[in-house]
Design a protein around this nucleic acid. Structure first.
Lengths: 341, 341
DNA sequence: ATAAAAAATTTACGCGCGTAAATTAGCGGT
DNA sequence: ACCGCTAATTTACGCGCGTAAATTTTTTAT
């Protein structure tokens, strides 16, 4: 039961017994007013349920509290999960996150960035499409808006990059596969959307060389972000043409592995590390779905929490003025052993 | 190379040779000005790359062009896909969509609705959490903001409901399963998050009765939105306790079916419609992932396009004043035959 | 207690645009 | 050429808040 409707900050200041500029200061940063004043304001907020008009607030403020979160494909649960994680961290830190997806389309990525500009964001957490991104547009955006790049690196753009250590990912799981059976071949897309794919291929080649095995890469055709279908179709083709030289297949990512599992099933090829199985298949990413494939997928998982925490903290530090030199941080993954390999 | 920086609508009106009120009118609705005027304005936009300040625009407008899209769980590709679909339709219709997820948490749903209020949206497309939603908060929100409820209905709230015809879904796939093998039992959550689950159970019971078979429902424990895990754990339990009376299992939804497939695999139970298989498993939803399970999942799919088109069109009509009486529209699904049943 | 420092208040202006009312210009039809 | 209508212009005010400068009050330190 609010005693009466508060229409604006003037009225709110009146009923709370504090001057409007001080109230304004409070909403900008609650710690910037005296403790007793803060208590009185917060009591009045509680009582009158007043919230300042965000449009009027942001109109004149040089720096808003808005933070944009941009991912290349929200329909991919991996990005949905990391976006959720980042969103929570923004809220906790007092920012207003807004979520955007490029839906796998470079033109939509450009459109998203343009719309984002209009929000005058204090900062942006951006996972670019990668190879398909318009680098010039990205670079110009990063000049204008404090932008932290995550997941997939594009040049040395923005205030920093935070992602996973793909070298370590692939080296680690390759090592595991070599120690527990035949050395793996490497299953990937010919023209991967994401630059991480190249790092993983190189890491595979290096790891195999280091262990004294001869590497073997199977690159399948396919464009876009329908990785499962690309893996399935490419897998059928590779099986049909007998392209896999060993019984162990390391996939460039989990979604490709999921498609390959489907192809294997459809061809009656049993997958697993047990004696009755024909091939071992492993993925990379720790995709939320990987637990539920048949067989459950052995993979190496991103440290979702660590990546998003570091990304968010770095952006907030930059926004608050503690800017450091551009830096790339890559966080190690954790091997998840399941039945597929 | 813009000849000079345009700072506001006054300056833009000056360089385009049109008065500011007319320019303002144009941005509100390009069709509301004369064709020749529109051409001059658009030429100037092209040349000077001017875009009005959205904060100033929305501050005084009684009705903004903002549309909120709220889903219960963005990490579920089903919701991600329908959200993407709705987003595109908003953009095409000239609205500015903003995406929100409750992340499966009723408190976050309330928080999202509160934040949404501050955006003064022209309308909202809301898929509620369902059973866990705070109905009072939803009702109050629907009173204040033109809200179209989709996916899962809660009372007769908002301007209309648009969703899938769960009766038809279940009747149709039950019919198919009865015609092609043993009549199915029904696998569901004991306390489903979503009211659609109840409709599906009832439709199953009705369909079985109609076909002259005795129905059998297996309700597994589990709270929250981790359906795959609930299906997997519940499946293990049901298999262990021999709770499935027939070799055909119709799951209340695809994610539950995915978990049940995993449980079947882990117990060495072969799934499929072929002779060598032990059980048939079918889902409901046409989940984006259902194509890639092993075996690929037979399911009945939402008509994503039709649902989102009808939802968006109904909301836009209501926003533009063509309000009709509250109405519930349920769209039929399409059976997708794959190998699991 | 007193001075210095910190916080709050008063006053006042501006942001970029929405919008209303009265006026003027442009258009087609006869 | 005239009338009637629609569209554009001029003028003017307001929205809700940010923010700066000058002043007063409160707190802290001595």
């Amino acid at each position: 039961m609010p005693p009466r409707e508060i229409r604006n900050m003037d009225e709110f200041a009146a009923v709370s017994g504090i001057s409007r500029p001080t109230v304004s200061k409070y909403f900008h940063n609650p710690d910037s007013v005296r403790q007793s004043t803060r208590a009185r304001i917060e009591a009045a907020i509680e009582q009158y349920d007043y919230r300042p008009n965000i449009f009027a607030m942001n109109q004149n403020r040089k720096l808003t509290k808005n933070v944009g979160i941009v991912v290349p494909l929200l329909a991919d649960p991996y990005f949905a999960e990391i976006a959720r994680n980042l969103e929570q961290r923004c809220i906790v830190a007092g920012y207003s996150p807004t979520l955007f997806s490029a839906h796998g389309d470079p033109e939509q990525e450009v459109a998203v960035l343009n719309n984002l500009r209009a929000l005058k964001p204090a900062g942006v957490l951006l996972a670019p499409l990668g190879r398909a991104s318009d680098t010039d547009v990205l670079a110009k955006f990063c000049e204008d808006v404090p932008t932290l790049i995550f997941d997939s690196s594009v040049a040395e753009l923005g205030i920093a990059f935070v992602g996973s250590d793909n070298q370590q990912f692939t080296a680690h799981i390759t090592d595991y596969l070599c120690r527990t059976g035949e050395p793996p071949c490497f299953f990937e897309m010919k023209n991967p959307a994401n630059p991480n794919a190249h790092r993983r291929r190189h890491a595979y080649l290096a790891a195999m060389e280091k262990f004294g095995h001869s590497p073997h890469v199977i690159s399948v055709a396919g464009e876009g972000w329908g990785f499962e279908e690309i893996g399935r179709v490419g897998g059928h083709d590779a099986f049909a043409r007998n392209l896999f030289p060993t019984n162990t297949i390391l996939c460039s990512n989990d979604r490709l592995a999921i498609g390959l599992l489907t192809a294997s099933y459809e061809r009656g090829i049993t997958v697993g590390r047990g004696d009755g199985s024909t091939v071992r298949i492993a993925g990379q990413d720790g995709h939320p779905h990987s637990r539920y494939t048949c067989p459950p997928l052995t993979t190496i998982s991103h440290d979702y929490d660590a990546v998003s925490k570091h990304a968010a903290d770095t952006l907030f530090a930059a926004i608050e003025g503690n800017a450091e030199r551009w830096q790339s941080t890559r966080i190690e993954g954790r091997l998840i052993l399941r039945d597929s390999a």
